[in-house]
């Protein structure tokens, strides 16, 4: 089917060109320069083309150009605004980081100060406490010594009286006080209680 159609088409074209050739021999209207319309058409062409050129270059094209420029300007402006906003945001982030860092440092130093003062207070308190305890200990030791000395003195006296009484009961004779006292002292000294 297709070759037949193509052949038919080719045939039509060939017949068409032969017909056209005959027409051309008769003369193309475009080459008929005796016709005044052929030349007047060019004069009007010049007028219309020049008017179109003037209107396009002075009136229509600048409008389209200004629209394109406006868009380009707006896009550039938006980009600038976006860049400025980004710079501001970056600055804000930097400020925030700086403030956080400063707050950290302040908090650290305050914590360190509080710890130091608490340590000092604790050290002072323990120092006074230990001083008081030392004083109390000393006082108690003093009292113990006094009591012990007193007790020692009483022990010698009780031992001498008891010894003298024992001598009286056993021998019936009165013991020499000085001798008894010396003997008690010797025994006590031997036992380490004097």
């Amino acid at each position: 089917m297709r070759p037949v159609a193509a052949l038919a088409g080719l045939g039509t074209v060939l017949i068409g060109f032969s017909a056209m050739a005959e027409e051309v021999e008769k003369g193309m209207p475009q080459l008929d320069f005796k016709n005044p319309l052929t030349i007047s058409q060019v004069v009007w062409l010049a007028i219309i083309f020049f008017a179109l050129y003037l209107l396009l270059s002075k009136w229509a094209l600048p409008q389209v150009g200004s629209v394109l420029e406006m868009r380009a300007g707006r896009i550039a402006g938006d980009l600038d605004a976006a860049r400025a906003a980004k710079a501001k945001a970056d600055a804000a982030v930097a400020d925030l980081t700086e403030a956080t860092r400063a707050a950290h440092a302040t908090a650290q130093s305050e914590i360190a100060g509080a710890v130091a003062s608490a340590k000092q207070a604790a050290a002072e308190q323990s120092a006074t406490l230990s001083a008081r305890l030392d004083a109390q200990l000393e006082a108690a030791e003093g009292r113990i010594n006094v009591a012990r000395t007193a007790a020692m003195g009483a022990l010698r006296q009780v031992a001498s009286v008891t010894a003298a009484e024992v001598v009286v009961r056993l021998t019936g004779a009165t013991a020499d006080a000085a001798q008894v006292d010396q003997a008690v002292g010797g025994v006590l000294a031997a036992r380490g209680l004097a």
Partner: peptide
Amino acid sequence: AHAIDALGQFAL
């Protein structure tokens, strides 16, 4: 060929 007026369309 006479029936086909292919160039008449260009007449001013």
